[in-house]
């Protein structure tokens, strides 16, 4: 029997029953946006970064944000975390309007969010164990619980052997995976990936994407995945994770019979949303800008 908690795919062909899945997908708590941007505008000095951006991310959904370097992709993530404030518009997290929150209030909101930085952003004076345990230590969690949680998270990213290493002893890919483990401590409802595969070799980038897929399909985590690499987009929008009869995680392709409903792509262009939809629509688009971005010509 296959397990798929997040109901990530719906059958496309008529001969497959999907009424139960539809009901599960349409449940009110699943439709309510976990992240919502309403007409967000932001400019640094004279340069407009975001110009009236509106979008939402549902529970268990992954939003892939594409766009040129410096196009405002990472800015969206910083806005969600409250690290910067918008010039106009509202930001809602879990239905809560956080736009005018002060720092102590934002600290509470950030407890629900895990963030994976481009280079990992590990604390270089702390070993891997302490990096992953950081959030729990700040919360004053008991040592036993900290130890169990850190080991669980490092197992999830397959890095239990690196537990005592310092960040400077790790490869780029390992640093990102430790960054993911650190972000996932406390089981956040939302995980934000800021170009987590930048500069990594294809197999390591694939491993990072598989972790994001597992989070989406097996842990029902809502996520934003900022990238400009088309390989990431292909993995995230065409594969899903299931647990097979042996309890092992397996990655399946959606193929021609299924359509992934929990992954959407948003492309930023000149501070506005240039495209929003499924990967199939993106691939079929005739827009010259999108074609250049997707096909390289």
């Amino acid at each position: 029997m296959l397990a798929n908690e997040g109901n990530s795919v719906l059958p496309l062909s008529d001969d497959v029953e999907f009424s139960d899945m539809e009901e599960a997908v349409d449940a009110p708590e699943r439709i309510a946006p976990v992240i919502e941007f309403r007409d967000i505008c932001l400019a640094f000095d004279e340069k407009v970064i975001l110009d009236g951006i509106s979008f939402s991310v549902r529970r268990g959904e992954t939003k892939i944000i594409l766009g040129r370097s410096g196009g405002g992709k990472s800015t969206i993530i910083r806005l969600i975390l409250g690290l910067i404030k918008p010039d106009a518009g509202r930001i809602l997290i879990d239905g809560e309007d956080i736009t005018d929150y002060d720092e102590p209030e934002l600290m509470q909101v950030r407890q629900k969010i895990g963030m994976v930085f481009q280079e990992g952003a590990l604390f270089d004076s702390l070993p891997v164990y302490e990096n992953v345990a950081y959030r729990l230590r700040e919360q004053g969690t008991e040592e036993e619980e900290v130890d169990a949680e850190v080991r669980r998270m490092l197992r999830f990213v397959a890095l239990e052997d690196a537990i005592d290493k310092m960040p400077n002893e790790l490869s780029g890919g390992m640093r990102r995976r430790v960054g993911i483990a650190r972000a996932l401590v406390g089981d956040p409802e939302i995980v934000l990936f800021d170009e987590p595969t930048a500069g990594l070799d294809p197999p390591t980038a694939r491993t990072i994407c598989e972790l994001a897929i597992k989070l989406r399909d097996l842990h029902d985590v809502s996520s934003i995945f900022v990238t400009h690499e088309m390989n990431n987009l292909r993995y995230l929008s065409s594969e899903y994770a299931v647990i097979d009869e042996n309890g092992e995680v397996r990655f399946e392709k959606e193929g021609g019979r299924l359509c992934m409903i929990n992954t959407e792509i948003m492309m930023l262009r000149d501070g506005k949303i240039g495209f929003q939809g499924k990967d199939e629509e993106l691939m079929r688009s005739d827009d010259p800008y999108i074609r250049t971005f997707v096909h390289g010509k």
């Binding site: 975390l81 720092e103 509470q108 930085f117 481009q118 590990l122 270089d124 959030r135 700040e138």
Partner: peptide, 14 residues
């Protein structure tokens, strides 16, 4: 510059 301060804030520490 290595985003550790942002990471700290993201992890809920002032």
């Amino acid at each position: 510059v290595s985003q550790q301060i942002e990471a700290m804030r993201a992890l809920g520490t002032d």
